[in-house]
Write a protein that binds this DNA or RNA. Structure first.
Lengths: 214, 214
DNA sequence: GGCGCTATTGAAAAAACGTCAATAGACTCA
DNA sequence: TGAGTCTATTGACGTTTTTTCAATAGCGCC
């Protein structure tokens, strides 16, 4: 008769376990729909231990979102070689692959940012910046000129990419994965073209991409 | 000596008052940052009354989001006359005006949808559909052909519009209101052009719009 | 000016959050 | 192998917040 035998892990392991679980649970639940009670039971630990590691519920949420964001940033690191359009395509490809493979993590990030307080939205913005900043940092001469208007539009484009990737995951019937990647890639120059003229070279590449994609 | 004189309203009036207050309070707070205690005090009522009207906290949240969505839908009703591009422009204009005048209501809708559970996201989707559905219902021949791929892209466009309008409200420095309206209008055909060919007529109108807008 | 309807209250139960001294794995060293 | 130490973990307890519900009191009607 010895059910309540406690298991002792290293702090790293325990943090890892709890964050993994948090990412999973917060993918389809808001924070106040997740009680510490149920989280603790699911993890096989006492409530107290969660407070030992994360202080309070909000800090736990922040840690979960931070983890999801770090994962995303790490796994969508930009390629260093190739021309701007190629690099953008590779980056979008990595992004879509990431969401495909880590749907729950991505959901907990997006949902957290949508409903959370400002400090959580900051983490989210950081992740989004990882996706868009290099466009301005490295490719501003050729792909996107750096002006207030283009920055503005690129921000909207990022929101669109997020929506499209989530939409594709929810209903993969409308477009294939490859089509999705081509679409999100091709829409960036198309959008920028609304507020700034496109260099001929980019326009040509864009046209070629569209033909090969569908 | 009679401070605690209770005020008795009709159920309609009371519901109205509480929903108005809820919209205001949930614009910059998540649901669990809003206690029933403070809501009741702010409204000048007892906690019990809120439960009488809305059952529980989550149902109250849902009612608040529903109200914000209904407001948005009602105030961005599409014009019936004019050619497709004109109607789209009028619709976007109404949309931007609405967000400009009802920032708090719009925020509580968007935040609620981002962080809430599925039933709240459904309300949000309904509001978004009010913005996009008529594009397919009325203008599919001329502006946007109705295919799975175009529906998919239009959905992304709606997310982008939301992000851009919020971005403009948060920092009106990057673009003017009129520029914003032109941008969100012009980006729809530009995006659809990525997945479907644009009729010459629309392309011409689009070009004219862009020139006059900036 | 009493009567009935029901909007509203307040107290008390239930549930969730957060704290902290006490407990017990797992390793070290004799 | 067994005592000792370190610290991960617990469980009971106090606090805050949500939720319930029988009792109260405004307001219109006769």
């Amino acid at each position: 008769m010895s059910l309540p035998t406690r298991t002792r892990l290293t702090p790293e392991q325990r943090r890892h376990q709890l964050l993994d679980l948090g990412v999973r649970l917060l993918a389809d639940r808001s924070l106040d729909e997740l009680s510490i009670d149920m989280l603790a039971e699911e993890a096989g630990i006492s409530r107290g231990l969660l407070y030992h590691y994360f202080g309070n519920k909000h800090d736990f949420h922040r840690a979960v979102v931070r983890r999801a964001a770090d994962d995303l940033i790490a796994q969508t690191a930009p390629p260093v070689a190739g021309d701007p359009v190629e690099r953008l395509l590779a980056s979008m490809s990595a992004y879509v692959d990431y969401v495909d493979a880590n749907y729950e993590g991505y959901l907990s990030l997006v949902r957290g940012a949508g409903g959370g307080n400002e400090s959580i939205r900051d983490i989210y913005d950081e992740a989004r910046a990882a996706l868009t900043d290099r466009i301005f940092r490295e490719d501003q001469e050729t792909l996107v000129p750096d002006t207030p208007a283009t920055r503005f539009v690129v921000r909207g484009w990022a929101a669109m990419v997020e929506e499209l990737v989530l939409g594709w995951k929810a209903d993969p019937g409308a477009v294939t994965k490859d089509e999705l990647i081509v679409i999100v890639t091709a829409t960036l120059p198309a959008l920028v073209g609304v507020v700034a003229p496109l260099p001929d070279e980019v326009a040509a590449q864009l046209a070629a991409l569209r033909t090969s994609g569908s």
